[in-house]
Simulated scan of single mutants.
Amino acid sequence: MTVPTPHINAKEGDFHKTVLMPGDPLRAKYIAENFLSEAAEVTNVRGMLGYSGKYKGKNISVMGSGMGIPSISIYSHELYSFYGVENIIRIGSCGGYSEDVNVNDVIIAQGACTNSNFMSQFHLEGTFAPIADFELLLNTFNKAKELGIDAKVGNVLSSDNFYAQGSEGWKKWKDLGVLAVEMETAGLYAEAASLNKKALGIFTVSDHFIYTDTILSSKERETKLNDMITLALETFAE
């Protein structure tokens, strides 16, 4: 396969080495318009927008991933395999599980559990544990401390289910120390591992399974996601 790929219509060289990847393509547009200079749209297949530009004079790209492991696996695979991308940083919201995290907190995903069957493609005689690249994780954690952001580091769950039909299985994940739930990171980490690339997930807790009386409003979500976006840009723009 050559570029453009079936799902990305960018030209060769349009993407920088590091891509920030929110789930929502409109969030990618928001980042490009509000944080980047010299931002240019480089892909728009199926409305999945991607941009390249500069942050404080340094190169960075941003592109939506859609929702769920199947979606992010397609875009990350094509970016890694055909566009020379080395690092993908998932940035998004998550639902808190642990008493140790609160709404508004930033979580850096050291590892990503999953209830998905995605790993079966590797035909392993066991269970693969999808983890972040340590250098990306360490750099982000240190930058968070520098910026005064109290980031929590730990395990998240990448769930195939957003609506779990009344299940309280989340409590079992919580009991194993899982901090929060989202829907993509395990697939991203597996793609990165299989292609010898690097990946990291950074999240803002937007709601909580225990502290259910605290949910971010749309305005609050925008402000707090801005903190996470700034952390990612300050760490990874090159």
Results as ranks from 00 to 15, higher is better:
L200Y: 00
S71W: 03
L176R: 13
I74E: 02
I74Y: 06
A180I: 09
I74W: 01
I60K: 00
F162N: 11
E184R: 12
E41G: 09
F118P: 04
S120P: 11
R90Y: 02
T185N: 11
G148E: 11
I74N: 02
R90Q: 04
F82W: 09
T214K: 13
S217P: 06
N44E: 08
T223F: 15
H7G: 05
L157R: 02
K56I: 08
G64W: 01
K145D: 13
M119P: 14
D100T: 15
I108N: 00
G84I: 10
S61H: 04
M183E: 06
A164D: 13
G50A: 06
L233F: 05
E168A: 08
K29F: 05
E234R: 04
V205I: 13
I69F: 05
S52G: 08
L157V: 13
K11L: 14
N104Y: 14
A40Q: 14
L20H: 01
W173L: 08
F134C: 08
G64S: 07
A186H: 01
L195V: 15
T214M: 08
T43N: 03
P22L: 07
L136A: 07
D14Q: 07
S61V: 03
L138N: 12
K197N: 05
F35W: 07
V106R: 00
N44T: 15
G47A: 08
D105R: 00
E41C: 14
E234W: 04
D213H: 14
M119N: 14
T140V: 11
G187Y: 00
A28N: 07
I8H: 00
A192V: 01
G201R: 01
I74R: 03
V101F: 01
A237T: 08
G53V: 02
H77V: 09
S167C: 07
E182I: 08
K145L: 09
N117K: 10
V62K: 00
G201V: 01
A129W: 07
G148M: 05
G154K: 03
K11Q: 14
G66K: 01
D133K: 01
L137A: 03
Y83H: 06
I108D: 00
G23F: 01
D175L: 10
N161H: 15
F35Y: 09
E125F: 15
M1S: 15
L147P: 00
K152F: 09
D160C: 09
K219L: 15
K224L: 10
A10T: 06
K152D: 06
A151C: 14
T43M: 02
S120F: 12
A190C: 13
E99M: 10
R46N: 13
E222L: 12
D207T: 10
A39H: 04
H123M: 14
F122M: 12
S52Y: 02
K219M: 15
